[in-house]
Design a protein around this nucleic acid. Sequence first.
DNA 1: TTTGTTTATCGCCAATAGACGATATGGTTA
DNA 2: TAACCATATCGTCTATTGGCGATAAACAAA
Lengths: 101, 101
Amino acid sequence: MKRTLETIAYKENTEALAKFAKALGHPTRIAILKHLQSQSCCFTGDLVDVFPLAQSTVSQHLKELKNAGLIQGELKSPKIKYCINQENWKIAKSLFQDFFD
Amino acid sequence: MKRTLETIAYKENTEALAKFAKALGHPTRIAILKHLQSQSCCFTGDLVDVFPLAQSTVSQHLKELKNAGLIQGELKSPKIKYCINQENWKIAKSLFQDFFD
DNA sequence: TTTGTTTATCGCCAATAGACGATATGGTTA
DNA sequence: TAACCATATCGTCTATTGGCGATAAACAAA
């Protein structure tokens, strides 16, 4: 995991696809996204109740999904409502679609 | 990353999808698979020439793709010919397709 | 048998990931 | 202001990942 400077230059789509895939590379995050799809939106607390994980752990997974652009949060004080980021979802969808031919 | 015993039980599809996604979660592995798609098959040595990575590193990536079931190797002494595992490829494709709706 | 070719595996290291409890933050409500 | 939510962040721990060079293994050919 050296090669921190002078990283390999991949095509943009390759990097983007890998980034999305990495975010999807954990069953908890897949399950969170499935939950968001079925509920359309939900609060962090809902997820903490659903999964037998610490609140901080769930929050961490949400952060990674947010960083990857797959979800977005909206402040509904005092809670935060998370939804799928539809725009990036479409991008991810078509990247995977194209990749698999 | 504790919870080694008493792991969470996810639905089978969730686990399978996460496993495929994890394997796709590195740009080098995406690039290898793209290469295999365009060439239909190729040898380890070909990939070592294409990527500025040590032979052992490329071999490691191939191992992970093989473990995930996305590729398969066939001995063509003294080389090994790697191809997409079409059967599992279809499975992965439909898992991602279903996931993204 | 020895040599050469190709690929996998080993050992090592640094960085990242994933889990947790504890604490901080931001916004309501009393 | 003070107390109370819900959530994020911090610090710590262990496991895994990704890179490398060196070595092993498998096999063909000399």
